[in-house]
Nucleic acid binder design. Sequence first.
DNA 1: GTAACTGCAAAATATTTGCATCCTT
DNA 2: AAGGATGCAAATATTTTGCAGTTAC
Lengths: 138, 138
Amino acid sequence: MQKLEGQILKDYELRTTTSRSAILRLFIKNAFALSYSDIEREIAATFDRVTVYRTLKTFLDKGVIHKVLDDEGSLKYALCSEPCSTHEHHHEHVHFKCSTCGHTNCLEDVTIPMVRLPKGYVVAEVNLLIQGTCNNCQ
Amino acid sequence: MQKLEGQILKDYELRTTTSRSAILRLFIKNAFALSYSDIEREIAATFDRVTVYRTLKTFLDKGVIHKVLDDEGSLKYALCSEPCSTHEHHHEHVHFKCSTCGHTNCLEDVTIPMVRLPKGYVVAEVNLLIQGTCNNCQ
DNA sequence: GTAACTGCAAAATATTTGCATCCTT
DNA sequence: AAGGATGCAAATATTTTGCAGTTAC
């Protein structure tokens, strides 16, 4: 079952405020990554731009959400999954961007195969962005 | 041997102008990916900001350079290698960002292993961003 | 000569900061 | 009550557009 926003805020020791709850709810409702403007589009009427910026920053700092790279270079954000935030060593992210529906989401179950790097390189973190067509848009 | 900027411009059927040559020379000189501000820092005195933006756009459109995703979400650019621009099917990029020196470069020789995706997903393009320590910074 | 490129000014966007007020705990 | 969060105003940064003058071919 999906966690509710109140619980998430409590878990991360964040105060429950209207804007945080609303933004979190957006992330919960949409399974895919949201850009700043996605969020603003849905919320701007209610909350100040600055609040949205600051809330995202707080969530990032606390590890509630993480950055998702878009192929165009625009940044998006997505909720961190349980393992992502609790296990220190979970330093891999696989994101899939569907070129049809335009949505980007995390593929939690996909693991990145070992990559052979040239001598002398040490890997700390790996990010994989895959583009193509998702199962819904086939 | 490294190609010279004049040759590159000719290859891509672009007019040879002072700013294009200068910006290309920057990319040739630096083996790593450059952000817009990296470029401006070195060039701004000589060329207008707008020219830099437009030149980068032209280079992107023609395939002279490609976008490099940064873990922070800031965009960088790097020269396309021969195979990158000539072979239609070269749709893979591996970039390595060293957390010590901060440079990001393309690992041309590294190929991305096949990734097993859930049923229904079709892959068109893959981007891998690896972070860690590069061979120089060990 | 002509189409393409550049620089300047200015518009449009995006992001950050300071501060007074309000709200959660 | 107190510290943290918000909203507003405004500063700063980033990117885009229009247009007139210049340049490569």
